[in-house]
Nucleic acid binder design. Sequence first.
DNA 1: GGCGAAAATGCTACTATGTTGCACAATCAT
DNA 2: ATGATTGTGCAACATAGTAGCATTTTCGCC
Lengths: 144, 144
Amino acid sequence: MPQTHPATPAESLIAAQGGRITRTRVAVLEVLLAAEQSLTHDEIGAALDDKGIKHDRVTLYRTLDWLVESGVAHKMAGDDRARRFGVAASGPHEHAHFHCDRCGKVVCLEGLQPAVAVNLPGGYQLDRAELVLHGACPTCGKGA
Amino acid sequence: MPQTHPATPAESLIAAQGGRITRTRVAVLEVLLAAEQSLTHDEIGAALDDKGIKHDRVTLYRTLDWLVESGVAHKMAGDDRARRFGVAASGPHEHAHFHCDRCGKVVCLEGLQPAVAVNLPGGYQLDRAELVLHGACPTCGKGA
DNA sequence: GGCGAAAATGCTACTATGTTGCACAATCAT
DNA sequence: ATGATTGTGCAACATAGTAGCATTTTCGCC
Ligand SMILES: [Mn+2]
Ligand SMILES: [Mn+2]
Ligand SMILES: [Zn+2]
Ligand SMILES: [Zn+2]
Protein backbone atom coordinates (compact mmCIF):
# COMPACT_ATOMS: atom_id res chain seq x y z
CA MET A 1 0.00 0.00 0.00
CA PRO A 2 2.26 2.74 -1.19
CA GLN A 3 0.71 6.13 -1.61
CA THR A 4 1.26 6.90 -5.22
CA HIS A 5 1.36 10.50 -6.22
CA PRO A 6 3.38 13.23 -4.52
CA ALA A 7 7.05 12.27 -4.63
CA THR A 8 8.95 13.52 -1.60
CA PRO A 9 12.36 15.19 -1.98
CA ALA A 10 14.06 12.00 -0.88
CA GLU A 11 12.10 9.96 -3.39
CA SER A 12 12.91 12.35 -6.19
CA LEU A 13 16.60 12.22 -5.41
CA ILE A 14 16.59 8.45 -5.48
CA ALA A 15 14.60 8.24 -8.67
CA ALA A 16 16.89 10.76 -10.32
CA GLN A 17 19.73 8.30 -9.89
CA GLY A 18 17.81 5.47 -11.46
CA GLY A 19 17.39 3.66 -8.18
CA ARG A 20 14.36 1.93 -6.80
CA ILE A 21 12.41 3.68 -4.15
CA THR A 22 12.54 1.54 -1.08
CA ARG A 23 11.67 1.97 2.55
CA THR A 24 15.29 1.93 3.68
CA ARG A 25 16.63 4.27 1.03
CA VAL A 26 13.93 6.82 1.58
CA ALA A 27 14.27 6.72 5.34
CA VAL A 28 18.06 6.91 5.27
CA LEU A 29 18.01 9.79 2.88
CA GLU A 30 15.47 11.64 5.00
CA VAL A 31 17.69 11.14 8.01
CA LEU A 32 20.70 12.48 6.16
CA LEU A 33 18.81 15.41 4.73
CA ALA A 34 17.56 16.37 8.16
CA ALA A 35 20.97 15.98 9.81
CA GLU A 36 23.04 18.95 10.82
CA GLN A 37 26.26 16.94 10.65
CA SER A 38 27.63 13.87 8.99
CA LEU A 39 26.45 10.69 10.66
CA THR A 40 28.00 7.32 11.24
CA HIS A 41 26.43 4.05 10.16
CA ASP A 42 25.45 3.43 13.76
CA GLU A 43 23.90 6.83 14.26
CA ILE A 44 21.87 6.41 11.10
CA GLY A 45 20.79 2.99 12.23
CA ALA A 46 19.66 4.43 15.53
CA ALA A 47 17.75 7.17 13.72
CA LEU A 48 15.98 4.53 11.66
CA ASP A 49 15.06 2.69 14.84
CA ASP A 50 13.63 5.92 16.22
CA LYS A 51 11.54 6.34 13.10
CA GLY A 52 10.31 2.78 13.56
CA ILE A 53 11.93 1.70 10.32
CA LYS A 54 12.94 -1.92 10.66
CA HIS A 55 16.24 -2.56 8.94
CA ASP A 56 19.24 -4.77 8.71
CA ARG A 57 22.80 -3.73 9.48
CA VAL A 58 24.08 -5.04 6.17
CA THR A 59 21.32 -3.46 4.17
CA LEU A 60 22.17 -0.16 5.75
CA TYR A 61 25.80 -0.54 4.69
CA ARG A 62 24.71 -1.33 1.18
CA THR A 63 22.21 1.51 1.09
CA LEU A 64 24.87 3.97 2.17
CA ASP A 65 27.30 2.60 -0.39
CA TRP A 66 24.69 3.03 -3.05
CA LEU A 67 24.01 6.60 -2.04
CA VAL A 68 27.71 7.37 -2.21
CA GLU A 69 28.25 5.65 -5.54
CA SER A 70 25.25 7.49 -6.92
CA GLY A 71 26.76 10.74 -5.82
CA VAL A 72 23.85 11.59 -3.57
CA ALA A 73 25.81 11.24 -0.36
CA HIS A 74 29.43 11.48 0.59
CA LYS A 75 31.60 9.42 2.89
CA MET A 76 34.32 10.71 5.17
CA ALA A 77 37.04 8.59 6.68
CA GLY A 78 37.41 10.12 10.13
CA ASP A 79 40.17 9.77 12.69
CA ASP A 80 38.16 7.49 14.84
CA ARG A 81 37.38 4.33 13.02
CA ALA A 82 33.95 5.22 11.68
CA ARG A 83 32.93 6.57 8.35
CA ARG A 84 30.53 9.43 8.34
CA PHE A 85 27.87 10.11 5.76
CA GLY A 86 26.09 13.22 4.68
CA VAL A 87 24.22 14.79 1.80
CA ALA A 88 25.23 18.06 0.31
CA ALA A 89 21.97 19.84 -0.26
CA SER A 90 23.36 21.54 -3.32
CA GLY A 91 24.55 19.06 -5.85
CA PRO A 92 27.73 17.07 -5.72
CA HIS A 93 30.30 16.85 -2.99
CA GLU A 94 32.40 19.88 -3.73
CA HIS A 95 33.03 21.50 -0.42
CA ALA A 96 35.25 21.41 2.63
CA HIS A 97 34.46 19.89 6.00
CA PHE A 98 35.05 20.89 9.55
CA HIS A 99 35.99 18.22 12.03
CA CYS A 100 35.73 19.01 15.72
CA ASP A 101 38.67 17.28 17.36
CA ARG A 102 36.96 17.37 20.74
CA CYS A 103 33.50 15.97 20.12
CA GLY A 104 34.19 14.36 16.76
CA LYS A 105 31.36 16.07 14.89
CA VAL A 106 31.80 16.67 11.21
CA VAL A 107 29.93 19.41 9.42
CA CYS A 108 29.84 20.29 5.75
CA LEU A 109 31.10 23.74 4.90
CA GLU A 110 29.09 24.33 1.81
CA GLY A 111 30.14 27.01 -0.56
CA LEU A 112 33.77 27.06 0.35
CA GLN A 113 36.35 25.10 -1.50
CA PRO A 114 39.76 26.67 -1.72
CA ALA A 115 41.54 27.26 -4.95
CA VAL A 116 44.06 24.49 -4.60
CA ALA A 117 46.71 26.08 -6.70
CA VAL A 118 49.29 23.55 -5.75
CA ASN A 119 51.87 22.47 -8.24
CA LEU A 120 51.99 18.72 -8.17
CA PRO A 121 55.44 17.12 -8.42
CA GLY A 122 55.71 14.74 -11.33
CA GLY A 123 53.11 12.93 -13.39
CA TYR A 124 50.44 13.22 -10.77
CA GLN A 125 46.97 13.64 -12.18
CA LEU A 126 44.57 15.58 -9.99
CA ASP A 127 40.92 14.63 -9.83
CA ARG A 128 39.66 16.39 -6.77
CA ALA A 129 40.84 17.99 -3.58
CA GLU A 130 39.59 17.15 -0.15
CA LEU A 131 39.93 19.76 2.53
CA VAL A 132 39.23 19.05 6.18
CA LEU A 133 39.59 21.77 8.75
CA HIS A 134 40.32 20.65 12.27
CA GLY A 135 39.61 22.49 15.46
CA ALA A 136 36.83 23.10 17.95
CA CYS A 137 33.18 23.49 17.07
CA PRO A 138 31.15 26.35 18.58
CA THR A 139 29.80 24.08 21.30
CA CYS A 140 33.15 22.65 22.33
CA GLY A 141 35.13 25.86 21.90
CA LYS A 142 33.30 27.70 24.68
CA GLY A 143 35.84 27.05 27.42
CA ALA A 144 38.88 28.02 25.40
CA MET B 1 74.22 -6.76 23.54
CA PRO B 2 73.37 -3.33 22.19
CA GLN B 3 76.16 -1.48 20.44
CA THR B 4 76.60 1.67 22.42
CA HIS B 5 78.04 4.63 20.72
CA PRO B 6 76.97 6.03 17.34
CA ALA B 7 73.27 6.85 17.56
CA THR B 8 71.47 6.30 14.28
CA PRO B 9 69.00 8.86 12.94
CA ALA B 10 66.13 6.70 14.13
CA GLU B 11 67.61 6.38 17.58
CA SER B 12 68.19 10.09 17.84
CA LEU B 13 64.62 10.83 16.85
CA ILE B 14 63.31 8.48 19.49
CA ALA B 15 65.59 9.79 22.19
CA ALA B 16 64.65 13.36 21.31
CA GLN B 17 61.08 12.53 22.32
CA GLY B 18 62.15 11.09 25.62
CA GLY B 19 61.33 7.56 24.62
CA ARG B 20 63.31 4.43 25.22
CA ILE B 21 65.26 3.00 22.39
CA THR B 22 63.86 -0.40 21.66
CA ARG B 23 64.23 -2.91 18.87
CA THR B 24 60.69 -2.38 17.61
CA ARG B 25 60.73 1.40 17.70
CA VAL B 26 64.02 1.67 15.93
CA ALA B 27 63.07 -0.83 13.26
CA VAL B 28 59.64 0.73 12.65
CA LEU B 29 61.10 4.17 12.39
CA GLU B 30 63.75 2.97 9.96
CA VAL B 31 61.05 1.41 7.83
CA LEU B 32 59.06 4.62 7.83
CA LEU B 33 62.07 6.78 7.11
CA ALA B 34 63.00 4.61 4.16
CA ALA B 35 59.47 4.47 2.77
CA GLU B 36 58.44 6.43 -0.27
CA GLN B 37 54.81 6.44 0.77
CA SER B 38 52.71 6.13 3.86
CA LEU B 39 52.39 2.55 5.03
CA THR B 40 49.66 0.56 6.71
CA HIS B 41 50.12 -1.35 9.93
CA ASP B 42 50.23 -4.55 7.93
CA GLU B 43 52.79 -3.28 5.46
CA ILE B 44 55.02 -2.15 8.28
CA GLY B 45 54.61 -5.49 9.97
CA ALA B 46 55.64 -7.24 6.77
CA ALA B 47 58.66 -4.97 6.46
CA LEU B 48 59.68 -5.91 9.98
CA ASP B 49 59.35 -9.57 9.09
CA ASP B 50 61.60 -8.97 6.09
CA LYS B 51 64.15 -7.34 8.32
CA GLY B 52 63.95 -10.36 10.58
CA ILE B 53 62.60 -8.27 13.44
CA LYS B 54 60.34 -10.41 15.54
CA HIS B 55 57.37 -8.44 16.75
CA ASP B 56 53.85 -8.60 18.02
CA ARG B 57 50.84 -7.16 16.27
CA VAL B 58 49.71 -5.27 19.34
CA THR B 59 53.15 -3.92 20.10
CA LEU B 60 53.28 -2.58 16.58
CA TYR B 61 49.98 -0.78 17.09
CA ARG B 62 51.27 0.68 20.30
CA THR B 63 54.59 1.64 18.78
CA LEU B 64 52.86 3.44 15.94
CA ASP B 65 50.55 5.21 18.36
CA TRP B 66 53.54 6.35 20.34
CA LEU B 67 55.28 7.68 17.27
CA VAL B 68 52.17 9.64 16.35
CA GLU B 69 51.61 10.99 19.84
CA SER B 70 55.24 12.00 19.98
CA GLY B 71 54.81 13.88 16.75
CA VAL B 72 57.43 11.82 14.95
CA ALA B 73 54.98 10.14 12.63
CA HIS B 74 51.57 10.97 11.27
CA LYS B 75 48.47 8.91 10.74
CA MET B 76 46.05 9.16 7.82
CA ALA B 77 42.55 7.79 7.85
CA GLY B 78 42.18 6.55 4.28
CA ASP B 79 39.11 5.57 2.32
CA ASP B 80 39.80 1.92 2.66
CA ARG B 81 39.70 0.84 6.24
CA ALA B 82 43.40 1.07 7.03
CA ARG B 83 45.34 3.86 8.61
CA ARG B 84 48.57 4.80 7.00
CA PHE B 85 51.68 6.03 8.73
CA GLY B 86 54.60 8.09 7.61
CA VAL B 87 57.32 10.36 8.85
CA ALA B 88 57.74 13.82 7.52
CA ALA B 89 61.46 14.18 7.16
CA SER B 90 61.25 17.86 7.95
CA GLY B 91 59.68 18.44 11.29
CA PRO B 92 56.01 18.25 12.08
CA HIS B 93 53.14 17.18 9.91
CA GLU B 94 52.39 20.36 8.03
CA HIS B 95 51.90 19.33 4.46
CA ALA B 96 49.36 17.98 2.04
CA HIS B 97 49.03 14.42 0.81
CA PHE B 98 48.28 12.81 -2.50
CA HIS B 99 46.06 9.76 -2.53
CA CYS B 100 46.01 7.62 -5.65
CA ASP B 101 42.44 6.45 -6.04
CA ARG B 102 43.53 3.57 -8.24
CA CYS B 103 46.30 1.86 -6.31
CA GLY B 104 45.62 3.43 -2.93
CA LYS B 105 49.12 4.76 -2.39
CA VAL B 106 49.50 7.85 -0.25
CA VAL B 107 52.48 10.13 -0.59
CA CYS B 108 53.44 13.18 1.39
CA LEU B 109 53.64 16.38 -0.58
CA GLU B 110 56.19 18.18 1.49
CA GLY B 111 56.55 21.88 1.13
CA LEU B 112 53.07 22.57 -0.08
CA GLN B 113 50.27 23.57 2.18
CA PRO B 114 47.66 25.88 0.73
CA ALA B 115 46.76 29.16 2.22
CA VAL B 116 43.44 28.14 3.64
CA ALA B 117 41.91 31.55 3.65
CA VAL B 118 38.47 30.22 4.28
CA ASN B 119 36.07 32.19 6.36
CA LEU B 120 34.61 29.84 8.90
CA PRO B 121 30.91 30.24 9.65
CA GLY B 122 30.24 30.90 13.31
CA GLY B 123 32.30 30.24 16.40
CA TYR B 124 34.45 27.65 14.76
CA GLN B 125 38.01 27.64 16.00
CA LEU B 126 40.58 26.48 13.49
CA ASP B 127 43.58 24.46 14.61
CA ARG B 128 44.92 23.00 11.43
CA ALA B 129 43.92 22.19 7.88
CA GLU B 130 44.25 18.83 6.25
CA LEU B 131 44.47 18.71 2.50
CA VAL B 132 44.30 15.50 0.53
CA LEU B 133 44.54 15.56 -3.23
CA HIS B 134 42.91 12.68 -5.04
CA GLY B 135 43.72 11.37 -8.46
CA ALA B 136 46.12 9.04 -10.20
CA CYS B 137 49.77 8.58 -9.31
CA PRO B 138 52.42 8.59 -12.05
CA THR B 139 52.42 4.79 -12.20
CA CYS B 140 48.67 4.40 -12.44
CA GLY B 141 48.08 7.42 -14.67
CA LYS B 142 49.97 5.99 -17.62
CA GLY B 143 46.98 4.53 -19.46
CA ALA B 144 44.90 7.69 -19.23
C1' DG C 1 -4.78 -4.74 -11.48
C1' DG C 2 -1.67 -8.87 -12.13
C1' DC C 3 3.06 -10.91 -14.01
C1' DG C 4 7.65 -11.56 -13.95
C1' DA C 5 12.46 -9.94 -14.43
C1' DA C 6 15.52 -7.21 -11.93
C1' DA C 7 16.91 -5.16 -7.81
C1' DA C 8 16.96 -4.78 -2.85
C1' DT C 9 16.63 -7.02 1.66
C1' DG C 10 17.61 -10.01 5.63
C1' DC C 11 20.09 -13.72 7.41
C1' DT C 12 24.26 -16.09 8.81
C1' DA C 13 28.79 -16.36 8.71
C1' DC C 14 33.18 -14.39 8.08
C1' DT C 15 37.20 -10.95 7.67
C1' DA C 16 39.90 -7.10 8.88
C1' DT C 17 41.32 -3.74 12.03
C1' DG C 18 42.04 -2.18 16.37
C1' DT C 19 41.88 -2.58 21.99
C1' DT C 20 42.33 -4.23 26.80
C1' DG C 21 44.41 -6.50 30.69
C1' DC C 22 47.99 -8.55 32.66
C1' DA C 23 52.33 -11.17 33.37
C1' DC C 24 56.98 -10.83 31.92
C1' DA C 25 61.19 -8.58 29.89
C1' DA C 26 64.11 -4.78 28.56
C1' DT C 27 65.85 -0.15 29.37
C1' DC C 28 68.39 3.21 31.65
C1' DA C 29 69.29 6.57 35.65
C1' DT C 30 71.62 5.91 39.60
C1' DA D 1 74.91 -3.96 39.16
C1' DT D 2 70.14 -2.77 40.84
C1' DG D 3 65.59 -1.65 40.51
C1' DA D 4 61.88 1.58 39.22
C1' DT D 5 59.91 2.52 34.98
C1' DT D 6 58.71 1.55 30.48
C1' DG D 7 57.89 -1.50 26.70
C1' DT D 8 56.63 -6.26 24.98
C1' DG D 9 54.03 -10.56 24.12
C1' DC D 10 50.12 -13.14 24.50
C1' DA D 11 45.18 -14.21 24.79
C1' DA D 12 40.90 -12.56 24.72
C1' DC D 13 37.73 -9.12 23.21
C1' DA D 14 35.53 -5.33 20.42
C1' DT D 15 34.12 -2.88 16.41
C1' DA D 16 33.47 -1.99 11.52
C1' DG D 17 32.77 -3.79 7.36
C1' DT D 18 31.97 -7.83 3.66
C1' DA D 19 30.28 -12.12 1.17
C1' DG D 20 26.92 -15.58 -0.29
C1' DC D 21 22.54 -16.82 -0.92
C1' DA D 22 17.53 -17.50 -0.27
C1' DT D 23 13.47 -14.50 0.01
C1' DT D 24 10.92 -10.35 -0.76
C1' DT D 25 9.94 -6.01 -3.04
C1' DT D 26 9.75 -2.91 -6.77
C1' DC D 27 8.24 -1.47 -11.18
C1' DG D 28 7.83 -1.74 -16.28
C1' DC D 29 4.70 -4.04 -19.00
C1' DC D 30 0.47 -6.15 -20.52
MN1 LIG E 1 30.00 17.18 2.88
MN1 LIG F 1 52.65 13.23 5.55
ZN1 LIG G 1 32.67 19.78 19.11
ZN1 LIG H 1 48.58 4.64 -8.12
